[in-house]
């Protein structure tokens, strides 16, 4: 253990891998100093574990109906979070719903920020007419409220998780493009960019290899902070019946179906609501912590 530690904090690393691992270790130490960020990380790890181990953690089949035992209150025997209007176990549905939530989150994170990063850096680096064209396009997408635009896309493409993800990704990229462009504008005039240009590097190499690494931290922070919004939008689409379709145990959909009994059987809508709340909080706390770790302004010394 101490050998590994010494290897990580070695001031003269012997390989690029060791240098990168050392940087990650220092970042982790900074993150570990922030208890709230650790709580956030714990929540995300719990979400990942629930999704990975869903069949073992769940006490029942999430689709198994039992009309005799419908609308059981929490802490009733065998159903510690109660049952919904078809007698399905809410705990099992929540655990299986974690998979859907993660699926949506993962698909959005590999699309929207990447698109935003490319558009933002290209726009900021080239400037001029390219910048004007791309940024006006960004403005058009930014001018629409996200949920409304997502609604329009889903209405056009048809309901379903994949289309909901596509709609969210299409509406989520503009802020990343803005962040990346702002960051690009601050570095494009830097001497280290002038130096690599002077070495004969082409625009593609400069944007991908030299500009993007400077923008990635801000974009990652933004993504973690936006994750709560993405989950809420996905849940919102599910709630409106435009995202996941019944009988999928999607959290937004579960809230929608519990709405009818909110006053008498409050737990049917409240439990998935709490799950969304906790996961959103986890991403927000982690995002705040990551900002301290990754922000180039606080990290450069």
């Amino acid at each position: 253990m101490s050998g590994l530690r010494a290897w990580l904090i070695d001031p003269a690393p012997r390989s690029p891998m060791q240098a990168r691992a050392g940087q990650l270790w220092l970042g982790w130490l900074r993150l570990a100093r922030n208890p709230l960020a650790l709580i956030g990380l714990l929540i995300i790890v719990a979400l990942l574990a629930a999704a990975a181990l869903a069949p073992w953690i769940a006490t029942h089949d999430p689709y198994a109906q039992n009309l005799a035992g419908r609308l059981q209150p929490p802490l009733s025997p065998g159903h510690w979070l109660g049952t919904d209007e078809f007698g399905r176990d809410i705990w099992s549905r929540l655990v299986h719903g974690a998979r859907i939530t993660l699926y949506i989150v993962a698909l959005v994170t590999v699309t929207a920020p990447v698109v935003g990063l490319i558009i933002g850096t290209v726009s900021g680096y080239f400037g001029g007419i390219v910048d004007t064209a791309l940024m006006r396009l960004t403005d058009i997408f930014l001018a629409f409220p996200r949920l409304i635009l997502a609604l329009a896309f889903v209405a056009a493409l048809g309901p379903g998780i994949e289309n909901a993800v596509l709609a969210i990704a299409l509406t989520a990229w503009p802020p990343y493009a803005r962040v990346a462009r702002a960051e690009t504008l601050t570095v494009r005039g830097a001497d280290f960019i002038a130096a690599v240009r002077l070495q004969g590097a082409g625009a593609g190499r400069i944007v991908v290899g030299h500009v993007m690494p400077m923008c990635v931290p801000s974009v990652i922070i933004r993504v973690t902070l936006d994750m709560a919004g993405i989950i809420l939008t996905a849940a919102g689409l599910g709630f409106l019946g435009l995202g996941a379709q019944p009988p999928l145990p999607e959290w937004g959909l579960m809230i929608a179906s519990g709405r009818k009994f909110l006053f008498e059987q409050w737990w049917v809508a409240t439990m998935p609501g709490l799950a969304i709340f906790i996961v959103s909080l986890g991403f927000n706390l982690l995002g705040d912590g990551l900002r301290d770790v990754l922000d180039p302004r606080s990290a450069t010394r």
């Binding site: 280290f192 130096a195 030299h210």
Partner: peptide
């Protein structure tokens, strides 16, 4: 080739010397 004035600005902060 050129050597710049400020060595704090002329090296990419996220690239190793390598």
């Amino acid at each position: 080739q050129m050597v710049f004035q400020d060595p704090y600005a002329s090296l990419h902060p996220r690239h190793t010397v390598d």
